[in-house]
C-alpha cells in the first residue's frame, strides 16, 4: 500500500512540475508575441512625439532646405503632413466607395448561392485575390487607370488598386456575417410579403450591420498603410490635392520620401506614429462594434 502512495505522490509531483513549466512557457510565448508591438510603439513615441504639433496637421511637408536649416539650428522641422493626410483621406474614401458596394454585393451573392458551382469559383478567385502582392495590384491599376483613364498618375488609380485589395476582405466578411443571421429572420420578412431584395436591404443588412462595418473597418486599416501600389499610381504631391485625376500624396508615401531624405528623418517617426495610431483606433472601434453585436 505504501509503495502505491509513494508512486502516486511522485506522479502528482511530476504533473505539478509539468503544469508549472507549461504555465511559464505560455507566459514567455505571450511576451514574445506582444513585445514587438510594444517595442514598435515605444520607439515611435520616443522618436516621433516632438514633431507632433499643430503645424504637423495643418502644414504640408517641408522641402529639404527648410528641414536642413532647422536641423542645423537644432529646431523641430517646420511643416507637417497635411498633404499626406488629405491624400490618404481622398484615396481611402474613394477606394471604400468603390469596394464597399461591390464587395457587399458579391458577398451577398455568395451567401445566396451556397454550394453552387459558379459561386464557389467566385469565392476561390476572391481568396486568390487576397494573396496577390499589392505591388502587382499597383501595376494593374497603372495599366487600367493611369494610362487609359487619367493619362497620368492619379488618386483615382491608387483608389482602384486599394479597392481591389479591400474587396476580398469585404466579400468574406459579408458572406460570413450573412451566414450568421438565422434563416428564420429572412423567412419572417418574406412571410410578411416583403419582396426578396427588400428583405435583404431592410432586414438582413441592418441585422448584420455591425458585422459588415467591422469587416469594412478592418479592410480600411489593412490598406491605409499600403505604399507600394501608391508609388505606381498616385505618385505623390508636395501640395494638398483634391483632384482625383491628379497625382496625390499619402501618409505612407511621405514616410517613404522622408526616409529617402536624411534631413527629414524625424518626420519618419511622427508620420509612422500617426499612421499606427490611426490603424490602432480603427481596430479598437471595430472590436468594440463586434463586441456590442455579441452582447
Amino acid at each position: 500500500m505504501s509503495s502505491a502512495t509513494i508512486q502516486y505522490n511522485t506522479r502528482s509531483d511530476y504533473r505539478k512540475r509539468k503544469n508549472r513549466l507549461f504555465y511559464w512557457l505560455v507566459i514567455a510565448m505571450s511576451a514574445i508575441t506582444v513585445s514587438p508591438i510594444l517595442l514598435i510603439v515605444y520607439k515611435l513615441i520616443i522618436q516621433g512625439y516632438k514633431q507632433i504639433n499643430w503645424s504637423f496637421f495643418t502644414k504640408v511637408a517641408p522641402n529639404t532646405l527648410e528641414a536642413m536649416t532647422a536641423n542645423a539650428q537644432g529646431e523641430v522641422i517646420p511643416g507637417g503632413i497635411l498633404n499626406g493626410i488629405t491624400g490618404t483621406f481622398l484615396i481611402v474614401v474613394m477606394a471604400a466607395i468603390i469596394a464597399i458596394p461591390v464587395g457587399i454585393m458579391i458577398g451577398l451573392f455568395l451567401y445566396e448561392n451556397q454550394g453552387k458551382r459558379f459561386a464557389s469559383i467566385v469565392r476561390d478567385i476572391s481568396d486568390i485575390l487576397q494573396g496577390v502582392p499589392s505591388i502587382v495590384l499597383g501595376l494593374i491599376a497603372y495599366m487600367w487607370v493611369v494610362k487609359p483613364v487619367t493619362h497620368g498618375f492619379s488618386a483615382l488609380a491608387g483608389s482602384v488598386a486599394l479597392a481591389i485589395m479591400m474587396l476580398p476582405l469585404i466579400i468574406r466578411s459579408t458572406e460570413e456575417t450573412m451566414k450568421m443571421i438565422p434563416t428564420s429572420l429572412k423567412e419572417a420578412g418574406l412571410a410578411l410579403g416583403v419582396p426578396y431584395y427588400k428583405v435583404i436591404l431592410r432586414v438582413l443588412i441592418p441585422t448584420g450591420f455591425s458585422g459588415l462595418s467591422t469587416g469594412i473597418l478592418l479592410a480600411i486599416s489593412r490598406i491605409i498603410g499600403e505604399t507600394a501600389p501608391l508609388m505606381l499610381t498616385t505618385l505623390g504631391s508636395s501640395a494638398v490635392n483634391w483632384d482625383v485625376t491628379k497625382p496625390t500624396s499619402a501618409i505612407p508615401l511621405l514616410v517613404w520620401e522622408f526616409y529617402n531624405d536624411p534631413n527629414m528623418a524625424n518626420l519618419i517617426w511622427s508620420s509612422s506614429l500617426f499612421l499606427m495610431g490611426f490603424v490602432l483606433v480603427l481596430n479598437i472601434i471595430s472590436k468594440r462594434i463586434a463586441a456590442k453585436q455579441n452582447r
Binding site: 438565422p182 428564420s184 423567412e187 419572417a188 432586414v203 441585422t207
Partner: peptide, 8 residues
Amino acid sequence: FQRPNPFP
C-alpha cells in the same frame, strides 16, 4: 414560426 423571430 416555431422559433420566435422578431426583427432584432
